[in-house]
Design a binder for these strands. Structure first.
Lengths: 231, 231
DNA sequence: TGTACATCAGTGAACGCGCGTTCACTGATGTAC
DNA sequence: TGTACATCAGTGAACGCGCGTTCACTGATGTAC
C-alpha cells in the first residue's frame, strides 16, 4: 500500500529536474518546484533571506540552518526545494544575471552600442549602466552574489557563461561597424568590456552615493573612447 | 614553579602582535612569529598549501584540518602561528598585495604614468601589467586570493586599503599634469583604474594563453586612451 | 668540546559544537463526487 | 455545498560527521658554563 515504487530513491521526488551533477558531485538544481501559493512564498523567502545574509556575512558564513532560522522556517522546509546552499546561490545567480542580461540584450538590440559619436555612445552607456546598477541594488544579495559566484569554484562557470553570452552578442552587434578589426581582437575586447563593466557595477553599488555618478560616468566615458580605437 | 604569571591568558604567548580584533571579533593577526629555521619552514608551508587549496577549492571549502593534512602537519603546529584560517588568508593577502603594490609604486616613481603620447603610455602600462600578472601567477593562490578577499566581509577592508593607497599615489603622480581636471573626478578616475586593473589581472591569469596578450594589450590601450580625456 | 638546562617546535588524541541532512509525523490545500 | 480522500507543505526532533580548537606531552634546537 505504500506509494514507493521499486527503484525510486527514498525522499527524492521524481519531479525534480535531474541534470547531471557538477564535477564535484554537488547537486545544483532545485528539487521540487512549489505549486501552491504558500509554497511559492516559502521558496521566495528562502531566496530573499539567503540574499540578505550573503550581503551581510558572505557565502562562507552562510548556513542552511541560519537561513531557516532567520526566515522563520524549519530545515526540512528548505530542503524540500533546495538540495544544499549551492543550489540556493545558483538560483540567486541565475535570477540576478538573467535580469541583468535581459535589459542589456534589449539595449543592444535597440542599437545601444552603435552611437556614431563618442558623446552618443557615452550617453547610451550611462543609461544602461544605471539600469544595471539599479537592478543590482534592488536585488536581495546585490553585488555579493557576483562575488560569491567568483569565489566558489563549482559556480564559476555560471558567471562565465553569462558573460560570454553577452560578450558574443556585443560582438555580433558591433562586428559590421568595424570591418577592419580582426575577429579575435574584437571578441577579446568585448569580453573584456563586459567583465570590467561587471566589476564597475559592483564597485558603484558599494560606493558612497556622492561618487557613484561620477564613477559611472568615468567608466562609460572610458568605454566610449575605447571603441573609437577600432576601425 | 610554573612559568605562568597571574594574568597571562593560557596558551596565548605574549609575543604576538595583539592588535584590536576585527569587528566580528575574529582575530586576524598571526600569533608567534617563528624563530628557528624549521619553524619558518612550517609557517611557509602552511601559507603555500593554503594558497594552493584556495585556488583548487575556494576559501569556503578551505579548512584548517585539511591544510594540515595536505601540508603533512598536525593542527597544533598550525595553531601555533595562526589563530584561524582568516589570519592565514590575511597573511596571504598582505603578501600578494604588497608584492604587487611594491612594483606598481616603483613604476609610478619611475614616471610610468606620465608618457606624453598614447603610444608611450600604452607601452608603459603593458610593461607594468605584465609584471603584476607574472607576480600573481607565481604566487601560491594567485587570483583566488583576491576573489576570497572580496567575498569574505571581514577581510574586504584589506583590499580597499591597498587599492586606495595605490590610487592615491596615482593621483599624486598625475595631478600636476592635468591641472584643469577637478580633484574629485581625477581621484575617482584613479580609483576606478586601479580597481579595474585588478579585475583585468584576475581575468588574464585565468585566460587561455592565446588570448592573454591581446587582453592585456586591450586593457592597457583603453586606459591609455582614457587618460587623454583629462586636461 | 661536552654537558645540563631552557626554550622552541611539533605530535597524538581528543573535545564540543554546529553544520548539513533526514525521519516520522501533523496540518493545509486541492479535488472528486 | 458538503464530505472523503489524495496530495502538498511544513514541523519537531534528532542523527552523524567533521570542523575549529586544545590538552598534555615528546622531540629538536639553542645556550651557558
Amino acid at each position: 500500500m505504500t506509494s514507493e515504487t521499486a527503484k525510486t530513491p527514498r525522499g527524492r521526488p521524481p519531479k525534480a529536474a535531474s541534470k547531471t551533477p557538477s564535477p564535484a558531485g554537488i547537486q545544483l538544481e532545485t528539487k521540487l518546484q512549489p505549486t501552491q501559493a504558500r509554497a511559492q512564498d516559502t521558496y521566495e523567502i528562502v531566496l530573499a533571506t539567503a540574499g540578505e545574509m550573503l550581503r551581510d556575512m558572505g557565502f562562507e558564513q552562510l548556513t542552511t540552518n541560519a537561513i531557516c532560522q532567520r526566515a522563520g522556517l524549519t530545515p526540512p522546509a528548505l530542503y524540500r526545494y533546495f538540495p544544499n546552499k549551492y543550489a540556493i546561490l545558483k538560483e540567486l545567480g541565475d535570477r540576478l544575471m538573467s535580469a541583468q542580461d535581459r535589459i542589456v540584450l534589449d539595449w543592444i538590440d535597440g542599437g545601444g552600442l552603435l552611437g556614431e559619436t563618442v558623446e552618443a555612445r557615452l550617453a547610451q552607456a550611462i543609461a544602461i549602466q544605471r539600469k544595471v546598477i539599479e537592478i543590482t541594488h534592488a536585488f536581495p544579495g546585490g553585488a555579493a552574489i557576483g562575488r560569491a559566484l567568483r569565489a566558489v569554484p563549482i559556480l564559476q562557470r555560471l558567471r562565465f557563461e553569462s558573460r560570454d553570452m553577452v560578450a558574443d552578442r556585443f560582438y555580433q552587434a558591433i562586428r559590421p561597424h568595424y570591418p577592419n578589426t580582426a575577429e579575435q581582437r574584437l571578441r577579446v575586447a568585448m569580453r573584456m568590456m563586459v567583465e570590467l563593466s561587471y566589476a564597475a557595477t559592483e564597485m558603484v553599488v558599494e560606493e558612497p552615493d556622492r561618487d557613484a555618478d561620477i564613477l559611472n560616468h568615468e567608466v562609460c566615458l572610458m568605454f566610449a573612447l575605447y571603441l573609437d580605437s577600432f576601425d
